[in-house]
């Protein structure tokens, strides 16, 4: 059970949060211009890394804000947390 430092509320138990998959996948601005393959890349393709992964999380049972997390999936160490729109920390 993680202890997650919500950038708006501070440290809270994992059960207040919802994981939202891989971070930094921007919705294409002009989807109609994309080929089926390009759209499929956006729609379906996600990384599943053993190691450092960038993720979206939502403080669903708290402030309801989305934010980003850098997590090492091999040992669940949370390396960084930053707000939506902020640049990811360099590794």
């Amino acid at each position: 059970m993680f202890l997650i430092n919500c950038p708006y509320c501070g440290e809270r138990d994992q059960q207040e949060f919802k994981a939202g998959g891989e971070a930094h996948i921007e919705r294409p601005k002009q989807p109609t211009e994309l080929s089926d393959d390009e759209w499929a890349e956006y729609l379906f393709m996600r990384k599943n890394i053993k190691g450092v992964q960038f993720e979206r999380w939502n403080h669903a049972h708290g402030c309801r804000k989305w934010f980003n997390m850098v997590r090492d999936t091999s040992n669940d160490e949370i390396k960084a947390i930053y707000k939506m729109g902020e640049k990811p920390p360099s590794q």
Binding site: N58, W66, G85
Partner: peptide, 13 residues
């Protein structure tokens, strides 16, 4: 509600 919030906060702030 969760989905709409997601789009508002992350895609169309």
């Amino acid at each position: 509600l969760g989905k709409l919030e997601d789009y508002l906060q992350t895609e169309w702030p």
